[in-house]
Amino acid sequence: MTAKNTTNSHQEISKWLDKYGDDMYSWAYYKTSSKETAEDLVQDSLVAAYKSFEKYKPGTNPKTWLYTILNNKIIDYYRSSNTRKSINESSLIGNSLEGDMYDSNGVFSKVQDSLWGNTEKHLLDNSEFNEILNNCINALPTNWRNVILGKYFHHKKGSKISKDLGITSSNMWQMAHRAKLQLKSCLDQNWKDN
């Protein structure tokens, strides 16, 4: 890129950030449940757009182009959430979580009371409850959270979720199970009105 082109593309990207930045940020948050990750993804996408600015076809909708880049970054993020480090970290949490709930034979070590009895419908409309669950979802280890998000985005189609995340099916069931236990435990601790 020449100096002039660089200035032009910098100005253009800056304009796009003003115009589409919030929408991209909202979309990335919707897809990842993490504000930090959403911010990083917006940044990475705009940097990528800047670096390959010559690939943008003038006259076409820049938002479409930016969203293509962003969605690719989101796919990369899902894949990379299953690094050895994050798997090790979530395994530790999972083992301690299961250790609290089950004995060595995999049998519940204490009576499991249902959190809500017959109040389901009322609870789903309870804003305080939803706020707590919202925070519980965001606090899940990244790779478990992505399985939960995958269940939602892929309408529970397991094969698509495991493909997106680059994990085996049995890993996915295990993570979905542990994520569920963690959400229940988080609600047990934070939801007092029962």
């Binding site: 499991q112 789903l124 979802i137 569920k180 959400l183």
Partner: peptide
Amino acid sequence: SLSIDSKLIDQAVFKIL
């Protein structure tokens, strides 16, 4: 009990998302 909670958590999570 866990199964009841599990279904409800799923519904609530889907609603939030």
